[in-house]
């Protein structure tokens, strides 16, 4: 009996160690992803319909918070400090905070990057580059009229758990992200 207990304790310790190793490996990967996201040189990538579909459906165990904004949109600009705070809040956790600009895709250098620099935006940013603007709008949410800003939260299974048109707050978004994260 004592031998069996020794074997079981040994197994338990081994499992715990393995868990820690795998956990720390996962954390390293997450922090690597986030380092890439918080680019020192700001890059804005064009996002087409297959990119959007991939971004939403292939989550690799991570929650997505996606905000659609534009340089000309006053409430979007007002919302940015909360989005930056949100990004900082979830550093080291399986949450991607991502922005998609609704400016024209030929305005990356002239408008979008200067805006991101001015506001010290640390999270990954795309610009919507769809042949039909409507496809992007419907790709975010079919009920969305196109009014900016708009935000969605997607769970690790690629299912949308939250959609908001108009300006949100840090607490509101954090509450929704935490609900979506659940036990993660």
């Amino acid at each position: 009996m004592a031998g069996l207990l020794r074997v079981m304790s040994g197994l338990l310790i081994a499992v715990l160690i393995a868990g820690c190793v795998s956990r720390s490996g996962e954390e390293k990967k997450i922090s690597g992803d986030q380092e890439a996201a918080a680019q020192t040189t700001i890059e804005v990538t064009k996002l087409d319909d297959s990119d959007l579909n991939r971004l939403i459906s292939q989550r690799n165990g991570r929650v997505l918070f996606l905000n659609v904004w534009a340089t000309w949109c006053v409430p979007c600009v007002e919302e940015f400090p909360d989005l930056i705070r949100l990004h900082r809040e979830y550093e080291g956790r399986p949450v991607d905070v991502v922005g998609v600009s609704a400016d024209f895709d030929d305005e990356i250098d002239s408008k979008i990057i200067p805006f991101l620099k001015k506001h010290n935006v640390p999270f990954r940013t795309f610009v919507a580059s769809f042949r039909r603007q409507e496809d992007f709008i419907n790709g975010i949410d079919r009920s969305w009229s196109g009014a900016l800003p708009a935000s969605i939260i997607v769970n690790p299974q690629g299912k949308k758990t939250f959609f908001l048109v108009g300006k949100g707050t840090f607490d509101q978004f954090k509450n929704e992200i935490d609900k979506t994260l659940g036990g993660l």
Binding site: A102, Q133, E134, I137, S145, G146, L148, P149
Partner: peptide, 10 residues
């Protein structure tokens, strides 16, 4: 029915 980006009605 069509859609486009625009400003939210305040």
């Amino acid at each position: 029915e069509t859609k486009a980006f625009g400003c939210t009605i305040k």
